[in-house]
């Protein structure tokens, strides 16, 4: 008989810490990346600039959490529709507030429900009719963007009321509510993935859907929930975007789905499913934001930045490949 080590009582706190520093390799890369900007433009480290980075990373941060759910759920899980969902849900709510006299809270509720509806629709098509997530969400991306254009006629909904924009302009001390909300979402996502039955079952479904099914897990339900969460988070990102710009625009969120997927992948979430961490994904978001911010401070032309980002995403994927290869073990 095997002798097992005595049972250790596990404490919650260090584990959370561990989860956050789990991908310290990425922390290291980020710090190295900050060296040139520290020398050339020390203003990078000012509170003003850092809080700016925090506010700017909120939208992508929230969208990335959605992708983490969907990517972990496996079966080719990916959601390309979030950029359109962001615009659609935000503009529906904003339009009701500005044009139909809805109170702000009701408008926000409509926005969130719209996000949930689009996400659940994705999930239903993908699981029940078994269309690949790539095709489904690509189609929904195109169609929903069309709906936005039909609804607005291409015009912005401007002059959002104070109560709405306070989400970004007010906060706790000098930290904007949008930043607080974003970090709360990071935390909740991490807790769901690590400590709940849903999280455990999500990893199981992504890791091996057949084994999960045989173990009595309702694979369909778990996946629909993942897409629904992703849609909900897209609408939250829509609210933050609108509050920041005082305006809900029909082109908001364009291309953001790919940035969010990149951030998740840089942070070690697997496109094959069953693997992914909030800590890594958040670092991925921070990394992409810092690239934007530092290159901006150093006045590097956008074309170079784009090339650099592409190289970094590829580099992250290659690193992940090396890390998970047999030789490395």
């Amino acid at each position: 008989m095997v002798q097992n080590p005595p049972l250790k009582k596990e404490i919650l706190m260090p584990k959370i810490l561990k989860a956050f520093i789990g991908s310290y390799g990425l922390v290291f890369v980020i710090l190295i990346f900050c060296i040139p900007v520290t020398i050339i433009r020390p203003v990078f480290w000012s509170w003003g600039n850092l809080s700016n980075i925090l506010v700017q990373m909120t939208v992508i941060g929230v969208l990335t959490m959605g992708q983490v759910f969907v990517l972990i759920s496996g079966g080719g899980g990916i959601d390309l529709s979030v950029g359109s969902t962001l615009a659609f849900s935000a503009i529906l709510g904003a339009g009701l507030i500005r044009n139909s006299g809805f109170p702000v809270w009701a408008g926000l509720l409509v926005t969130l429900l719209t996000g949930i509806a689009v996400g659940a629709f994705n999930g239903l098509i993908i699981t029940k009719i078994k269309i690949s997530p790539l095709i489904t969400t690509l189609a929904v991306q195109t169609a929903v963007r069309g709906l936005v254009m039909i609804y607005t006629g291409g015009a912005d909904v401007t002059n959002m009321p104070r109560a709405y924009t306070d989400i970004v302009s007010k906060g706790i001390g000098s930290i904007s509510w949008s930043v607080v909300i974003t970090f709360a979402i990071f935390f909740i996502t991490m807790v769901i993935l690590r400590y709940t039955r849903y999280g455990r079952e999500l990893y199981a479904v992504g890791g091996n859907e057949y084994a999960a099914n045989v173990s009595g897990i309702n694979v369909t339900k778990i996946r629909i929930a993942a897409y629904t969460a992703c849609g909900l988070l897209a609408s939250v990102a829509g609210i933050i975007t609108t509050a920041r710009l005082y305006t809900a625009g029909p082109r908001a969120g364009t291309g953001m789905e790919l940035t969010a997927i990149s951030a998740a992948v840089i942070g070690g979430t697997s496109l094959a499913g069953g693997k992914g961490y909030v800590s890594g994904a958040v670092l991925g978001v921070i990394f992409l934001q810092i690239i934007d911010n530092t290159t901006n401070l150093m006045a590097i032309p956008a074309a170079y930045v784009s090339a650099l980002k592409g190289a970094i995403i590829l580099g992250a994927a290659i690193l992940d490949r090396i890390r998970s290869s047999d030789k490395f073990k």
């Binding site: 709940t196 455990r200 091996n208 084994a211």
Partner: peptide, 28 residues
């Protein structure tokens, strides 16, 4: 193919079908 989730731990595999019974309000 469908016996176990190979990338998950022994522990996570063993309790997979009975998660419901060791959960409280959804928390394991």
């Amino acid at each position: 193919m469908d016996g176990s989730v190979l990338e998950m731990s022994v522990q996570e595999n063993i309790t997979l079908p009975i998660l419901k019974t060791i959960c409280k309000a959804g928390f394991i």
